[in-house]
């Protein structure tokens, strides 16, 4: 093989300079590699696969502890998913990790045909979902994956929004008999659950909507990135408008906890869904399905990627602001929804 040059060491002068090693350290909420390594100490079934992204998703932390159970398949995501299916038939519990766009979309058929149809216990760590890769562009965005995954029979879809809930979600699903799709952010996700889970281990339960704040005027349904933003928005609405919002983290998109959503919708009469996904097919659609199926009437509004647009080029935080997925955006959308007239027949407030 061709000899590769070995670069000399460099002393960087400006603390703002960075390389992948710095970026790796910043992805603090990517704790799956570390958590799985710990679980695997006592569970021989656990294996981890990645597709040339072990530093980006920090599964390298699993490799360091269990090198014999770590498989880097190179840039071959479809093969990775299907291989994991084969491994699962031998009693192993494989976790496959790569960008959401390259597994939730590129390998979607493998997720359906090789994992969900045979009902195999393979877990997918689909990270950098939504538009979190910013100006890397639409090829690297996944704003449709929930729409695809939500219609796959037998699939569990969970979106932990921070490190603590990711750890909890991994622990809670180790023995799940079928496949699980974990939709993750960019690894620099603000903490929501650490204190909540310390106080109450049931604060995050796969399959159950988490009620993070209670109020009678409005329900904000959040998921992933928008959880922290919605909590901040709710505090602002309380302080500035005297509006008390219920904030729900609809982290488990499939199966969907319709009962909790419908109860909140009936109590508040208004539902705003904020998600890092196309406004169709994702959490808002899951909520709309649940409300219609249950016959619950409420004012309803969706905040997400516009139906017929792909994202502008821009840094992630700027894009979130532009698409109103930050606290300002959620606050404004809530005000707009509450200004909307209620049910003309007076059934709604």
């Amino acid at each position: 093989m061709r000899e590769l040059p070995t670069p000399p060491p460099v002393e960087l002068k400006d603390p703002d300079s960075w390389d992948m090693a710095v970026s790796y350290r910043l992805a603090e909420s990517f704790v799956a590699g570390e958590e799985l390594a710990a679980i695997a100490d006592a569970d021989e079934r656990i294996v981890v696969l990645t597709a040339d992204l072990k530093y980006s998703n920090r599964t390298v932390e699993f490799e360091q502890r269990h090198p014999e159970r770590f498989f880097n398949v190179g840039i071959a995501e479809q093969n990775m998913v299907t291989m994991a299916a084969g491994m699962a038939t031998f009693g192993l519990v494989p976790y496959v990790a790569t960008f959401a766009s390259f597994v939730g979309l590129l390998a979607a058929e493998q997720l359906r045909t090789d994992l969900a149809y045979p009902g195999l216990p393979v877990r997918v760590l689909a990270h950098h979902a939504g538009i979190s890769l910013g100006f890397y562009g639409t090829s690297h965005h996944a704003t449709e994956d929930l729409g695809v995954l939500r219609s796959i029979a037998g699939m569990t879809v969970v979106c932990p929004c921070d490190a603590a809930s990711l750890r909890a979600a991994l622990r809670q699903t180790v023995d799940e008999p079928g496949p699980v799709y974990f939709r993750l952010g960019r690894g620099r996700d603000p903490d929501v659950y650490a204190a909540r889970l310390a106080a109450d281990p049931g604060a995050f339960a796969v399959g159950r909507i988490a009620t993070l704040r209670e109020g009678g005027d409005l329900t904000i349904v959040a998921n992933g990135l928008t959880v922290a933003a919605s909590l901040a928005a709710a505090e602002r609405l309380a302080a500035e408008d005297g509006v008390e919002a219920t904030v729900l983290d609809a982290h488990t998109v499939r199966p969907f906890d319709a009962a909790t959503l419908c109860a909140a919708a009936e109590r508040t009469g208004a539902v705003l869904v904020a998600e890092e996904h196309n406004v169709y097919g994702g959490v808002a659609s899951a909520c709309a399905d649940a409300l219609v199926d249950a016959g619950v009437r409420a004012r309803f509004s969706r905040l997400g990627m516009p139906a017929d647009e792909y994202a502008l080029i821009g840094p992630p935080t700027h894009l979130y602001k532009h698409y109103r997925l930050d606290a300002d955006g959620v606050t404004d959308a809530a005000r707009e929804l509450l200004r909307r007239p209620g049910d003309p027949q007076g059934a709604m407030r």
Partner: peptide, 21 residues
């Protein structure tokens, strides 16, 4: 389960690796 062409060798690769493990 098969039918979607192109998957089988990946299944076999995963199985062969798992058999070794």
């Amino acid at each position: 389960s098969s039918g979607s062409l192109g998957h089988g060798l990946s299944i076999g690769t995963g199985m062969a690796q798992a058999a070794k493990l």
